[in-house]
Design a protein around this nucleic acid. Structure first.
Lengths: 205, 205
DNA sequence: GGTCATAGTGTCCGCATGGACACTATACCA
DNA sequence: TGGTATAGTGTCCATGCGGACACTATGACC
């Protein structure tokens, strides 16, 4: 990986950056133009070398077929975009994406599951789930299309607000409970709307 | 978003899938070939419609310039690939990527920072940091190029193994401590190698 | 001084690719 | 019954694009 000259590294960086920015890999001419080459062949030679060194791949005679090969390549999984919602309105429309406040992009491997298109993320407020080590400020990913099982953490609509609770059954009846001794109440689950099951959590810092 | 016919949705899915798989968007002819169209124009028309409906974008006369526009588009940030290491060897080489066990892909927004190229992820073992709500099985992202500050969680090499501790100072001297009453020891920080500062945490399920 | 790898210029070719146009078929809807 | 939107075939064109070839220049190494 360190067998690259400075120039070659610049080229690789440009290709990556261009892909991030525009969603497509640059053509040889675009590369040449960026570096001020008066001839395309400069770029061609660089790409040839980078391909020999194994950090680039391409398919012959196909437009924009370059691919940056990273050592992590073989581990990479599909990524998904999950809307980060500020709050969940009572209505259960499909199109809550409109009200997104942000977007969480993560690979399905780290997420643990492939979420359905209606999955969403929430920021945790309050410490009612601290007993399950879910802290204020954490992002939780909620999957509505999952049947809650005993012990699962679920998001429920309580007093018009989304709240996290643990799902459990007692005497065959479902209840929700907070994971904090300060809130010992058990809430009968059928009195409210369960919005989904927590499938993952992301905490920064 | 629901103004799409089944056929159009299939097309959009194929474009996304092709991009995921090969890293590049399909050409019009590749689309036509996939769906068994005998003429390219079928694909052309579909793409035209999808563009009118705002779910596709493209630049005129440029190869493979299609882009799937999602409602989350405006929120999407750059993503980074972070190697998931099984264990961290004592040696502090730059090239630990080789020993990666997996790869965590996540957007920098959710991660909180843009990690340096030497950042890595670890799976938490044991409950020594449970007081900070870091549980066994969690993935933590470690940034070596960050100066630990008081209260930060750091990864330190203790007895040849990577362990999470809280960084703190007492009488001007740095110490590490576990966040679990069962492990009350304070360890003088200068006796060991601090591998980096925890910047994020990911928990599945 | 000779050899080799990197780094470029300039030019040509062939095909892959996007795009337009004319025409057909099948629904659905008022 | 006719109009409109979707879905598709067949053909032609201009050009974007990858690739090869010949040639030059500049270092580093021995």
């Amino acid at each position: 990986m360190t067998g690259l000259t400075r120039r070659q590294k610049k080229l690789l960086d440009f290709i990556s950056a261009h892909q991030e920015r525009t969603g497509m890999v640059p053509t040889l001419r675009e590369i040449a133009a960026y570096f001020g080459f008066k001839s395309k062949t400069g770029a061609v030679n660089h790409v040839k070398l980078l391909r020999q060194k194994g950090v680039l791949e391409s398919q012959p005679r196909r437009a924009r077929s370059l691919r940056v090969v990273s050592p992590l390549e073989r581990f990479r999984k599909r990524t998904v975009d999950i809307p980060l919602l500020g709050s969940i309105p009572a209505g259960f429309g499909e199109d809550r994406v409109q009200e997104a406040r942000g977007c969480v992009t993560i690979d399905v491997q780290s997420l643990g599951i492939k979420p359905s298109p209606v999955a969403f993320a929430l920021e945790v407020k309050g410490d009612s789930m601290i007993g399950k080590h879910i802290a204020p400020g954490d992002l939780v990913v909620i999957e509505p299309r999952a049947e809650p099982k005993t012990g699962d953490v679920v998001a429920a609509l309580i007093d018009g607000d989304s709240t996290l609770k643990t799902y459990m059954t007692r005497n065959g009846k479902p209840y929700l409970k907070a994971e904090n001794p300060c809130y010992p109440d058990l809430i009968p689950a059928r009195e409210l709307v369960i919005q989904g099951v927590m499938v993952a959590l992301i905490r920064k810092r």
